[in-house]
Design a protein around this nucleic acid. Structure first.
Lengths: 341, 341
DNA sequence: TTGTATGCGTTATCAG
DNA sequence: CTGATAACGCATACAA
């Protein structure tokens, strides 16, 4: 900028004015400056500007794994909202580790991002002290934290309930729940919803629950156990998209034909045989909501922290009906008249 | 930092030394400073530091759509490489628009990212002039650009060839190609590979090609056309993951049972009926390679631009064999002895 | 061992 | 309308 100023025989401030389209520059002066800018190929650097302005026009997003479709859809939505508002998005994976999450947040705070959207890791997430101290606005997503903060959550209880009611309506009484690592709040939440609804619907005790972390092997073992004894399970609910996939593979490999409702919709769920009934949360909508809430804060809104619970929707395909004929599931009273699901 | 200095009765420089763990500070002084830092909750801001240092420890990633698994896997890999090297990653979606890509790149250059990984948009991408002028190291990914630059590409020709050889080995002679928008270089590349190999293998002319942009409807129309006349097509190759999915849905809806090989692997391809044979590119490996190459440049490597072509791998499942019995595919000489695929 | 002066690139203030 | 100067938060060179 100094170069341009020297070349155009004006002060840096005048160049600054031209670059920022500020009023109060004589047209011919402006034209001269513009010409020099073109000739020298000058581009304003944001660093100095942002240092001076005290903002970075940057927001940070911290999730567990950017490659997981659930998070990548959140990421795409947050980035879009940011771009609309001329902000840039720094993304980081915490890889499920609370300590890494703290480190990543510290780095983002050090960089003075204007705000943060975080899917918190760990068993009982606490509003991050560093972030709190820095005063950086933050919106937590998918899982709540102890402390006063904006949160966008999903209706886990409602999702599980809709799944179980669906299964029961199709004659299932013995339903198993394959949950994720109880380290995750959502996993515990869904487990509690499962046992709660299990009681409400007067299903035969004990409720079968197997929490993760899961691999296809652990899922397979659980399913084998649940189906090999007396009173075999005829349906399972899986606690998230990864476990759904493990379960589908395990069922395929073990040649089990259980009814299934999966948490999280996934692409191609309709092309699997049978098409998979799922509890749909809308990650794009959640991400958008979180970003919007963050920008409300960035605009100086001082209202008390809000918690938004986003609804889920049961997408009925076929896997929630009675098991396939291959299995002799005496207890399952199929309602769908021999439909091969 | 000035506050801390004042409070501890030392100079800013001493605080700086303590913060950066530089040698040459008396332990008791350091302790005093640390105490004040704790008390005031001081955290160094990167802005000033980076302004002074002339680097930002930030790299940028520009792709078409962060929610597409192909790109989100690239994003996760690039972010991981960046994090290992204590850099942060700014991601942006160009949404397939060259003008938006230019705008996004200009913003990243203005922010003085240290380097860029870009999946270029547009028909004939040219090394971005702004980026070039700024001297920002850049690695292009998945599609080449005119001009001298590092590129990580995928072996599109080899991928298509492996798919066609597989289909021919399973008795198919009339194969259709459903490509993406010829706007994309990869789409054109794969189309050319298809027609080239089609000739090499002496398959009956004319080669059936239908380029996008595609919806399930356009894919359905193409498939209907190809299968309804005489000399019906018995197998199709799809040009990327989105088109594969359109094709699967269309075939399901139209009750067509064509052999299929899809470009790009996708989760659950093995659970579809029949399991989908795919040409696998490894987006994570491509992203990692691109980031590694970028960091080589960031370390000052001055070697001439390199182009790396990553191999593809045919993952054989079942969909590439003869069509299902439902179709009377006289021309398809199944080799798999009645196996029900 | 510690401090002073200076500069990174930009914008704000206020005087001309 | 234009410019000189200070300031943003930090690091470097050099001096004490």
């Amino acid at each position: 900028m100094a170069d341009v100023a020297a070349e155009a025989n004006v002060s840096v401030k005048t160049v600054s004015r031209v670059v920022n389209h500020e009023a109060g520059v004589r047209p011919d002066t402006a034209a001269r400056v513009v010409a020099v800018i073109e000739r020298l190929g000058f581009r304003r650097t944001d660093n100095g500007r942002l240092l001076r302005l005290g903002r970075t026009s940057t927001i940070g997003l911290v999730v567990e794994d950017l490659a997981n479709p659930f998070y990548s859809q959140i990421g795409a939505a947050v980035e879009r909202e940011a771009r609309i508002r001329r902000h840039q998005l720094i993304t980081a994976s915490a890889e499920g580790s609370p300590s890494r999450e703290r480190a990543v947040l510290a780095e983002l705070v050090a960089r003075r991002v204007d705000g943060l959207v975080v899917v918190p890791a760990g068993a009982t997430p606490v509003a991050d002290a560093d972030v709190l101290a820095s005063g950086t606005p933050i919106v937590y997503l998918d899982r709540p934290v102890r402390g006063d903060a904006d949160m966008i959550l999903s209706d886990n209880h409602g999702g599980i309930r809709s799944a179980m009611e669906h299964l029961v309506a199709h004659g299932h009484r013995r339903v198993g729940f394959l949950g994720d690592d109880p380290e995750f709040w959502t996993a515990r939440q869904r487990r509690e919803a499962f046992t709660g609804v299990h009681g409400d619907l007067h299903l035969p005790d004990p409720p079968r629950v197997c929490m993760g972390p899961h691999t296809m092997a652990t899922v397979g073992e659980a399913l084998t156990g649940w189906t090999s004894g007396r009173d075999p399970v005829t349906a399972v609910i899986t606690g998230n998209n990864r476990i759904t996939i493990h379960a589908l593979r395990a069922m395929r490999r073990l040649d089990l034909a259980l009814a299934l409702v999966g948490y999280d919709d996934f692409e191609l769920a309709d092309l699997i045989d049978p098409p998979v009934t799922v509890i749909h949360q809308d990650p794009a909508a959640m991400g958008q909501k979180a970003a919007q809430q963050l920008f409300v804060r960035l605009l100086g809104e001082e209202a008390p922290a809000t918690t938004v619970v986003m609804p889920t929707r049961l997408i009925v395909r076929a896997s929630g009906r009675a098991p396939r004929p291959a299995v002799t599931a005496g207890a399952a009273r199929s309602e769908s008249g021999g439909q091969r699901v």
